[in-house]
């Protein structure tokens, strides 16, 4: 298939960027979106031009690196899919495809389609952990946790931090990401002890990074590759309100 591509090119954080047009022939429908970009980059190398930089790692939908806006949607036209799991059969011959980086003030552009998602790391560093004694690993069954709770906590822990929730949010809110970690730890007995302090620290950090408010449009859940439920946001609000009232 033949494609017209309009791709955001930007040299560095503080340089001006713009959409540049490329033409690409001989694209196979079986290629993943990233393989199509690899093909384009090969043609650029042959021409002696700088390649288009984009983040990617596992290419099997579990690492959360390959975030980009494709035709105005986070990770492209499919719901709940990473960019690497999007294949060219989702497009038609002769299509024009717009490719842009995830945009948010808290996600500064490093180059082209690469953004800096350190803001997420800072949120995790602010409280996305438990305090435990070091030394010998404890006996695994000393704290009993019901199957239902472990499953629910794991559903929240499945977040891969790709940033699609922020990119698709009209307010660039990191509520889904932050709440997934808060829920994950608040559900488990090891995490419950520090739940109140954690939710306050993590929400404070989320604000400090410059993410916006959650308007409950629920667009994040639609785009999330891990189908993280927006109800985690409600639970974050619950944990936060509880902390406001009871935390000393």
């Amino acid at each position: 298939m033949k494609l017209s591509l309009k791709i955001w090119r930007q040299d560095s954080f503080d340089s001006e960027g713009s959409m540049i047009s490329y033409q690409l022939d001989d694209v196979s429908v079986n290629m993943s979106f990233l393989e199509m970009l690899d093909l384009l980059n090969e043609t650029l190398v042959q021409k002696g031009e700088r390649v288009i930089e984009f983040d990617h790692d596992c290419r099997e939908g579990i690492c959360g690196q390959c975030g980009m806006m494709i035709n105005g949607r986070a990770h492209g036209p499919l719901s709940n899919t990473t960019t690497c799991q999007l294949h060219m059969r989702s497009f038609k011959d002769g299509d024009t495809i717009y490719v842009e980086p995830f945009r948010a003030t808290a996600f500064p552009i490093v180059r082209d389609l690469k953004v800096d998602r350190k803001g997420f790391d800072h949120i995790i560093q602010a409280g996305g952990f438990i305090t435990a004694s070091t030394g010998q690993p404890p006996e695994a069954n000393s704290i009993l946790i019901s199957h239902q709770v472990t499953e629910a906590a794991f559903d929240a822990a499945a977040c891969i931090g790709c940033g699609a929730c922020v990119a698709t949010c009209k307010n660039s809110s990191a509520a889904l990401f932050t709440s997934a970690k808060i829920t994950h730890l608040a559900l488990l007995p090891q995490g419950k002890l520090e739940a109140a302090g954690r939710v306050i620290s993590m929400v404070d950090q989320m604000d400090a990074e410059g993410f916006g408010h959650c308007s409950n449009t629920e667009a994040c859940e639609v785009e999330c590759p891990q189908e993280i439920s927006v109800l985690h946001i409600a639970r974050m609000n619950y944990e936060y309100n509880k902390a406001l009232v009871f935390k000393t």
Binding site: R73, A74, Y98, R103, A106, N171, G212, T217, E218
Partner: peptide, 29 residues
């Protein structure tokens, strides 16, 4: 809230179809 959100949004998308993922009235409160 609107001012904070405007500050949180970076450069506008050149091509924006994010509306497909949510209902219009939730985005236009």
């Amino acid at each position: 809230i609107t001012r904070k959100n405007a500050g949180a949004n970076g450069t506008k998308y050149a091509y924006d179809k994010r509306g497909a993922a949510s209902v219009w009235y939730s985005r236009n409160m």
